[in-house]
Design a protein around this nucleic acid. Structure first.
Lengths: 115, 115
DNA sequence: TCGATATTTCGGCGATAATCGAAATATGAC
DNA sequence: GTCATATTTCGATTATCGCCGAAATATCGA
């Protein structure tokens, strides 16, 4: 299923903020296992309530997923969503010469397949 | 040269707006030859002064380049900048298992090599 | 149940962003 | 030089964003 432009804007907006981008990259680095909200807050250096707002935005954009584990909530990156966004950005690249840029389409094969 | 986080935020912010995203995708589709500002305004359906503001933001973020041709100003996508952004987003993907996501690193080979 | 830890929700404040109309600048044709 | 076309700059208005402190919710252990 292809991304709509408003969906792509939502995802890009979610990433277009320093703290949220840092959070997302941290989760990309962490892989499918993810990290608890508290650890993210400590690592990024942001208050828990502010982080919660950021996580909510990333979640609503579909870029990360939350799952509860005891008192903690574990967040992990959704790699499929990211792949969809990258594909959307490069769609129809170079018009008549797609073979130049098309290699992007089949990228980032599995990588945990989100969560 | 690797991207800094603030630079990446600038690029993502530039793309995180409906009209600007539409403009960028149009220029990606157009390829290295680019399009004059007027044609972009007509295609996207936005007033020339508003478009100019958007183009300025995309240009300042390094995602597009401008060159003058007579009375027109031709804008074209900077594919190298885009490649840099994608690489930044997926840096250190999945931590210990980079071979799963790494294929992203060497992507989008030339595609006009910007301008 | 009570207290401690982990996270989220709420209300408000200051800063930033998107758009507009009007005017200014740049280039080419006559 | 004068006019028309193409694009940009300016100033103002309205809406949205990011942060905070305080309070609420959820889970676990004693």
């Amino acid at each position: 299923m292809n991304l709509s432009l408003p969906q792509a804007v939502d995802r890009l907006s979610a990433l277009a903020q320093g703290h949220r981008l840092a959070v997302f990259r941290l989760l990309v680095k962490a892989g499918p296992d993810g990290l608890p909200a508290g650890a993210i807050a400590r690592e990024i250096g942001v208050r828990p309530n502010t982080l919660s707002s950021h996580l909510s935005i990333l979640d609503h954009a579909g870029l990360i997923h939350a799952r509860r584990d005891g008192r903690s909530v574990i967040y992990s990156a959704d790699f499929a969503a990211m792949r969809g966004l990258l594909g959307f950005l490069m769609e129809d690249c170079c018009g008549g010469a797609p073979e130049i840029c098309a290699p992007l389409s089949g990228l980032m094969p599995a990588c945990g397949a989100a969560a």
